[in-house]
């Protein structure tokens, strides 16, 4: 299989720990379910990610330096 994470179009995906999740939700004043989603079958997802985890994505932004975005892992 091709290593998806090596592709230029795929930014870095990392699982965010609980403490990190709290900080993020606090900062944006949102609930976990308000975050954008990513499906569990997503090929770019880290192998050990499970439904309910929050993924931190480090995008190479077009307008800023690095953009951190968060996606909640959901079933399908």
């Amino acid at each position: 299989m091709v290593d998806v994470s090596q592709h230029n179009l795929v930014p870095e995906h990392a699982i965010l720990d609980e403490a990190g999740v709290e900080t993020v939700l606090e900062e944006y004043g949102v609930d976990r379910t308000d975050l954008p989603k990513i499906t569990r079958r997503d090929p770019a997802l880290p192998d050990d990610a499970d439904v309910g985890d929050v993924i931190e994505i480090t995008r190479e932004s077009r307008t800023a330096e690095k953009a951190l975005v968060y996606r909640l892992v959901v079933e399908s």
Partner: peptide, 21 residues
């Protein structure tokens, strides 16, 4: 080169590389 090859079908990209791509 599996790191630079692209395609103009967004659904194929989605299937192979995921939402972010």
């Amino acid at each position: 080169d599996a790191s630079r090859t692209t395609c103009n079908n967004i659904h194929e990209i989605f299937r192979v590389l995921g939402v972010e791509a």
